[in-house]
């Protein structure tokens, strides 16, 4: 099958040095501005997307499309306004598109749920999120090495439940349940830490 790569820019003579120089000096500066804003919000953006589309396979695509669109429309972003809100707004449409496509598979949330979740996420501030991350770091330290090991395998090494179970000769169910307990423990710990800090 022939794969075509679309060149949508039409006429650029990249052999002309001058053209290229002009183009790139501008692109670089624009790129740097964009990247500095984006890196500050990317954690929240991922959180937003995975909350509304809790499917790891889809998140990357949605983020990819969102960032690509943000870059394209970057000139329409007004400096000084809320970049997170802008990013969420752009992601939202990508998410809706995705949900529309997924409807048949019946693995997506209802509009009402999506709406409430959006409210909850948007109500949280950067500071809340940073606080939460810090709490999570501390809670991780409290886990047994064994449990941390399992999380590392699951997330950093990206092992599947199946491959972990084969290698350590435990059933998938055992690992699944153990991860479940670790997650609950962490959730409780984070909550407790935040509540302590608040009062």
């Amino acid at each position: 099958m022939q794969r075509t790569i679309k060149i949508n820019t039409g006429l650029i003579d990249m052999t002309r040095k001058e053209d290229k120089k002009n183009l790139y000096s501008y692109q670089t500066e624009r790129g740097e501005r964009f990247m500095s804003l984006y890196t500050a919000v990317q954690r929240r953006l991922y959180h937003y997307v995975i909350s509304l589309v809790p499917d790891e396979n889809a998140v990357d695509d949605i983020i990819q499309e969102t960032v690509s669109f943000m870059w394209k429309k970057f000139d329409e972003f007004e400096p000084g306004t809320d970049f997170v809100a802008w990013a969420f707004c752009i992601a939202k449409y990508r998410i809706f598109d995705h949900i529309k496509q997924q409807k048949k598979k019946k693995r997506s949330f209802s509009p009402q749920t999506i709406h409430t979740l959006q409210e909850v996420i948007e109500a949280r501030s950067d500071a809340d999120e940073d606080h939460r991350m810090e709490a999570l770091r501390n809670c991780l330290k409290k886990l047994s090495r064994q449990d941390r090991q399992l999380l590392v395998m699951r997330y950093e090494v990206d092992a599947t439940l199946k491959s972990i179970s084969q290698r350590i000769e435990q059933s998938i169910n055992t690992i699944y349940n153990r991860l479940y307990r670790i997650r609950i423990a962490l959730m409780n710990c984070v909550k407790k830490t935040i509540n302590q800090d608040t009062f």
Partner: peptide
């Protein structure tokens, strides 16, 4: 749920 996905997202992507 949002607390949970926050943790999930941090594990998975960061």
């Amino acid at each position: 749920y949002v607390d949970f996905t926050s943790m999930w997202s941090d594990f998975r992507y960061f």
